[in-house]
Write a protein that binds this DNA or RNA. Structure first.
Lengths: 220, 220, 220, 220
DNA sequence: TATGAATGAGAGTTCATTCAT
DNA sequence: AATGAATGAACTCTCATTCAT
């Protein structure tokens, strides 16, 4: 079951093996249901060695979150060419995002499900990474407005709401693509671009969807 | 701390007290970290009574999920007038959704976080409710197409992707609204309508955002 | 080995059984070497019940210290008639002390050895009891001075030193009597009265302090 | 924190460094709470080297006890001039004893607390040293009797009891002096001489044993 | 002479669950 | 309808100790 027992590895290598095993176990079993015993066995080492190197279950989980968060943001960053127009940047970023989450489902589960579900200090770690992405998307939206020669008349706090919505949609589609056979990363990205850009495009043109006002609603 | 100890209640009432306590505890502590001891104390009864009525921790959690799922879908359904046009239905549904999640944060946490995080059989329970909502949204999108006298030329599976994205965006905005003071349910709904409908509106008009083809991309 | 398994005892009774087992185990094995498993088995219950009632190893040990300290000081107090002259009070107190320590060697080990050896919060608990005894002895010495119509010309802090010495001598003789077959509590008390009251200098002059014989005591 | 890492020391030197670290750690943490890790780090060497030289935790602790016992008895012996009368020998011995224990609190804790608390084979090691001191005191008492031209009419076993009491008093005063700021070794010795030699009875009559003043002592 | 890498064994603690009334 | 008494099983974490170099 576990990894082949290769003896006497240098510490740095062993640590990565342990993190690999931990991400897999946390991602599949969940943080609380994962036992240090199982992680150690999957890593091919004894439990005390895990504690010697990673200190505690909390620290181990935190290390997993950080590693996976760094890997995800790095993948997105590496996939985006900043010299392109905003919509092209978003397209590339989404493609990189869906590609990464589909290749690293356990890491994605750690970041998106486990870290957010089990309170502090984990939630904050995951929230930090998410905030980074939301900020990036926010900048893209503002850039798109500039490119369309529009000084957006809505306040930046509204833009954050839009970015939150877009990121949330991406997260949901990542789960959906992972769970639905036959949906590729590219298709997920295309669906989300259709949904988000055609919508945002209209917004940029100053034609938001208008809510019915309350008075009208009451009489309607 | 816990409920006042009132003795000899009829079973149905006691069960609701227990479910109240359980939803609160599961929502705040998480499924695994919540202890039957704490739930029983918060419900104001002894532990054996919880087992007598709800059978096991799994069954108790499942009962929570079902109750909260039913409550959420009922709230949304009750908030929507089916005779209205699709966009107005969506607006009303989102308003009801955000109102409910902001008034029931523990129930929302149970459904959106806890149930999805702790494997079977809970994930399926939550997925069933979510599928219902996604189906409703899918129907709304198709209805909107018909209202615009468009026979959508994209397959229904694509529509499901759009619905998934919309629902994901709604979930994220619910979390965001709950976590951000000063964001009301109505504002969240307006933000999402802007994002989703202006976008979907464009789609309905046959003007999707077009991905650059790969050959072109390599040369660009 | 362990106590007979008597089932379904009221909590108060079980707690005493647990404390009995704990004092015995801590006294013989030492605080750290004693395992909760062993204590539970000796008490005839399962480990979780020990934790349910006594909370933790620390709390259990603290409870032992308190119980044994209370028992020891109560025994000494009960053995002393306050209306007697100081030397007679000391004689009675020492008799009661040595009798108690010889009948409760495990409790004495807990108080004198284990509690002092394993840091806070245990040391303070034991020190509190010891301070009480030192204070009692200090009062006896001052009373003796008054009885001899002497206003002692040395400061009270010096008296505390003398009391410390006397208590230390008593502690050592308790260990010695417990370890040396054939040395009774009464003999230990007589030795210490000789040492402490008459003083070695007087002993050399052939004037030992004379214990009142038992017959006389009964009538007095 | 730990010792400076100087490499390639001769074995004898390294062993002393280890024993220094071990005495300090055992004295402060206690035998069981002290970890070989901490001792090795404090000694500035790796754990396997400690095992290579000292063999096991038990052997290491035994070596500590022996070294500290030898140091204490040597200090007392070196402080006593055998040609003096018995009371002066006692005075000098106590002075040396209190001086040593106050300068070596960790060693004293190892001998007086730790070694006695953790069973065999440690208790026996400490008991051997203590027996030596008790024997020395016993001889002093008998010598005092001879000097007073008294053939003590009580059996030698009684004398042993007196010696035990005196040693116990000294031990307690050593702890007391270490724990009470402002009490010097000389004061502790004076208090004990008063207590032990003149006797409380004599003290009441205003005839304390008088320590020879320092000037006289230097010339004598 | 000296150490980085590694572990078997066991500790304290917690929890879902049941029995007897 | 309701509970005080009780536990099997599992968990995180630590430590003395050894191997291979």
């Amino acid at each position: 079951m576990g990894a082949v027992k290769t003896k006497r590895m240098p510490r740095a290598v062993r640590e990565q093996q342990m993190l690999d095993a931990a991400v897999r176990t946390f991602g599949q079993r969940g943080y609380m249901a994962a036992s240090m015993d199982e992680i150690a066995e999957l890593a091919g080492v004894s439990k005390p060695l895990v504690y010697l190197y990673l200190n505690s279950k909390e620290d181990l989980f935190t290390a997993c979150i950080r590693r996976e968060a760094a890997a995800l943001t790095a993948a997105v960053r590496a996939g985006v060419r900043r010299e392109l127009p905003a919509d092209r940047q978003l397209w590339e970023g989404l493609g990189a995002f869906f590609a990464h989450t589909s290749l690293n489902p356990d890491g994605w589960s750690v970041l998106h499900l486990q870290a957010r579900t089990h309170g502090e200090p984990f939630a904050s770690e995951a929230a930090a990474m998410r905030a980074e992405i939301v900020a990036f998307v926010t900048q893209l939206i503002l850039a798109a407005a500039r490119e369309a020669h529009r000084d957006p008349d809505f306040p930046e706090s509204d833009v954050v709401g839009l970015a939150e919505a877009l990121v949330g949609a991406a997260e949901a589609l990542a789960d959906w693509a992972n769970a639905t056979p036959g949906v590729t990363a590219r298709q997920a990205a295309a669906t989300l671009m259709n949904f988000a850009w055609s919508g945002l495009g209209n917004l940029m043109d100053g034609q938001p969807w208008t809510p019915p006002d309350a008075a009208h609603e009451a009489s309607g």
